[in-house]
Computed example of a mutant assay.
Amino acid sequence: MFVVNRGGQIRGYLNLCPHYSSPLNIKEDEFLSSDGTALMCRRHFALFRLEDGMCFSGACEGKMLDPVPVTVRDGEIEIAV
């Protein structure tokens, strides 16, 4: 999984592209598009919205990344139960 912090909004997602069921990143910690406005599958360049993981461009358009519920407690990010 990976976590995105955009303006204090914390989101967690499984690191699994819904198109090929492979990790989004090729290099460690490389999940954002070059302009930083979207999540990007580095294997086939699909783009996903940061706020909900919905694919809006690419081969898996209309599919979503699997969310992982996260919370911040005492400044630490934890997987929520």
Rank of each mutant, 00 (worst) to 15 (best):
M1T: 13
F2D: 01
F2A: 04
F2I: 00
F2P: 05
V3R: 09
V4Y: 05
V4I: 15
N5M: 09
R6E: 15
R6H: 14
R6A: 15
G7T: 10
G7W: 07
G8D: 13
G8Y: 10
Q9F: 12
I10T: 13
I10C: 11
R11W: 03
Y13S: 07
N15E: 00
L16K: 12
L16G: 06
C17K: 01
C17L: 04
P18V: 02
P18H: 02
H19V: 03
H19P: 01
Y20V: 13
Y20K: 14
S21W: 12
S21V: 07
S22L: 15
P23V: 04
P23I: 00
P23K: 03
L24S: 02
N25L: 02
I26W: 14
K27F: 13
K27M: 12
K27R: 12
K27H: 11
E28Y: 07
D29A: 12
E30T: 13
L32A: 08
S33A: 13
S33H: 01
S34E: 14
S34W: 00
S34T: 12
D35R: 06
D35E: 07
D35A: 06
D35I: 03
G36R: 05
T37S: 14
T37M: 10
T37L: 12
T37Q: 12
A38F: 07
L39E: 03
M40Y: 08
C41R: 04
R42E: 13
R42P: 00
R42I: 05
R42Q: 15
R43A: 13
R43Q: 11
R43I: 11
H44Q: 07
H44D: 08
H44C: 07
H44V: 07
A46K: 01
A46Q: 06
L47R: 09
L47W: 05
L47T: 07
R49H: 15
L50T: 09
L50W: 06
D52R: 09
M54C: 14
M54N: 13
C55S: 06
C55F: 05
G58K: 07
G58V: 08
A59V: 09
C60H: 02
E61V: 05
E61G: 03
E61L: 03
E61K: 11
G62N: 02
G62L: 00
K63Q: 15
M64T: 15
M64A: 15
L65C: 00
P67H: 01
P67I: 04
V68K: 01
V68S: 01
P69K: 12
P69T: 09
P69H: 08
P69Q: 10
P69R: 11
V70M: 08
V70C: 09
V70S: 09
V70Y: 03
V70D: 06
T71S: 14
V72C: 14
V72D: 08
R73A: 11
D74E: 15
D74I: 11
E76D: 11
I77E: 00
I77Y: 03
I77H: 06
E78V: 15
E78H: 14
I79H: 00
